[in-house]
């Protein structure tokens, strides 16, 4: 083994064609990377830059010449000479159906505006399957002071499982349980979080794209009608606790911290925190009362 290969070899460029335009990207990039570089808006639900692609939602599929089926842009690596179509009838059809099928089974109302824009773009009409269809509707799980889990919103994107598992926290408090339409996210034997392995790092919440996982504070503010993202300001700072130096994003509304996240691209955290960094901010705003 040679030493100090840390500089990373300069990556070769690969030439491919997307929607008729030739483009060069670094070897090892995904089709999604290439699309983003070319400003082609590509819907994604289960992809996140700080997680290993699981390619399960299939909303990002594209047509690759020579491939019998569509391929997921988020995980498929580019190859020299690849010919990709991102807006063919087949692509539009599958993207539409994925969004429709999902939205017919779970409550996607708290997904980002971007997701709603994609639904509009592909003409997704979830109601067309009828109103007698099975859904994931179920009561909200509130079993601790920090998290709320509303699995009637869960699209099973696996992100929380990845964040709780090998991609970051390695605690594995939750996993995918059951199979087929009954597959769902759960602790072992559906045990309440306080009896599970959960360490409340909040990294699952940090990656959840649907609002299925939520900080209890946000849940309560939403219930009270006081949650207002337009009035929130996000400031980056460093966690006040241990010496690792995690970058925090403090979401502040009315001079009060309402949520804490971390930037996905920060070299220290990759977007992941621990319970202290995520929730340990209360002291700073309880001082008034104490003094």
């Amino acid at each position: 083994m040679s030493e100090a290969v840390f500089v990373g070899l300069p990556r070769r460029l690969v030439k491919l064609t997307i929607d008729g335009r030739e483009f060069e990207v670094a070897e090892g990039s995904t089709i999604l990377d290439a699309c983003r570089r070319m400003q082609i808006d590509t819907p994604t639900l289960c992809q996140l830059d700080n997680l290993t692609p699981v390619n399960v939602c299939r909303v990002c599929v594209v047509e690759v010449e020579g491939s019998r089926v569509l391929v997921p842009a988020c995980s498929r690596k580019v190859e020299a000479g690849m010919k990709v179509q991102t807006d063919s009838d087949r692509v539009r059809h599958s993207r539409r159906l994925v969004l429709e099928l999902l939205a017919s089974s779970v409550d996607m109302s708290l997904c980002s505006p971007q997701v709603h824009a994609w639904m509009g773009r592909y003409g997704a009409t979830p109601s067309r399957f009828g109103d007698q269809v099975a859904t994931a509707a179920q009561p909200v799980k509130i079993d601790n002071d920090l998290y709320v889990r509303d699995y009637s919103r869960c699209i099973l994107c696996y992100k929380c499982v990845e964040a709780c598992g090998v991609d970051a926290q390695n605690t594995f408090a939750i996993g995918v349980v059951g199979r087929g339409f009954d597959a769902h996210i759960s602790t072992e034997f559906d045990t309440p979080l306080p009896d599970s392995a959960c360490v409340y790092c909040g990294n699952c919440i940090g990656v959840c794209p649907t609002g299925a996982l939520m900080f209890k504070s946000e849940h309560e503010m939403r219930a009270a009608g006081t949650w207002d993202e337009s009035r929130q300001k996000v400031t980056e700072t460093v966690c006040p606790y241990c010496g690792v130096g995690c970058m925090l994003e403090l979401h502040v509304q009315d001079n009060s911290i309402v949520k804490v996240t971390s930037p996905l691209d920060h070299s220290v955290t990759s977007g992941h925190l621990c319970v202290k960094g995520r929730f340990g901010f209360e002291f700073v705003q309880r001082r008034e009362a104490k003094r």
Binding site: K233, T235, E236, T237, C239, G245, M247, L250, I257
Partner: peptide, 29 residues
């Protein structure tokens, strides 16, 4: 509070100097 109510830098265990920023108004006084 240094990390949320004022500006400055801190240094972590890998010698990385990073900015802290003011996100909140400190309590009166």
């Amino acid at each position: 509070a240094g990390w949320a109510e004022s500006e400055g830098t801190v240094t972590n265990s890998e010698r990385r100097v990073q900015r802290v920023r003011r996100a909140l108004e400190p309590p009166a006084g």
